[in-house]
Amino acid sequence: MPPRRVITGRSQEPRQRFAEELRSLRTGSGASLRQLGERLGWDWSLFGKMEKGETLGGPEVVQALDQHYGTPGLLLALWEVAAGDKTQFRERYRRYMTLEAEAVSLWHFAVSVLPGLLQTPGYARELLASGGFRGDELTRQVEARMGRKDLLEGEGAPPFRTILSEAALRTALRDPEEWREQLEHLAEMAERPNLTLHVLPQSAGLHGLSSTDVWFLRLPDARTVAYTEHGYGGDLIEENVAVERMQRAYDATRDLALSPAESRKFVLRMLEEVPCDPSI
Rank of each mutant, 00 (worst) to 15 (best):
G135D: 14
A190F: 08
K149E: 12
E137T: 12
E191I: 11
S105N: 10
S130F: 13
E143N: 12
V113C: 03
R125W: 11
R170A: 06
M189G: 07
A167S: 15
R170C: 15
R134Y: 06
E100N: 06
K86I: 08
P159V: 11
D150S: 13
R90H: 14
S165L: 09
T162D: 03
W179L: 08
A168W: 04
R94H: 00
R180V: 09
L99H: 00
G132L: 08
A101T: 08
L127C: 10
G154R: 05
K149D: 09
S105I: 12
G132R: 11
S105G: 15
G132Q: 09
E102W: 00
E143L: 10
P158M: 00
L138A: 06
E153W: 07
L152Q: 05
L173K: 05
D85E: 14
Y123A: 03
T98L: 00
R180M: 04
L128D: 08
H185E: 00
S112Y: 14
L169W: 12
D136G: 11
E153A: 10
A144R: 00
K149G: 04
E188D: 15
R174M: 06
Q119G: 06
E143Y: 07
E166W: 06
S130G: 15
V142N: 04
V104I: 10
E166Y: 09
L151K: 02
T162Q: 02
Y96H: 03
A110Y: 12
V104W: 01
G122A: 15
M146C: 15
A187N: 01
D85R: 13
A157N: 14
E102M: 01
A129R: 11
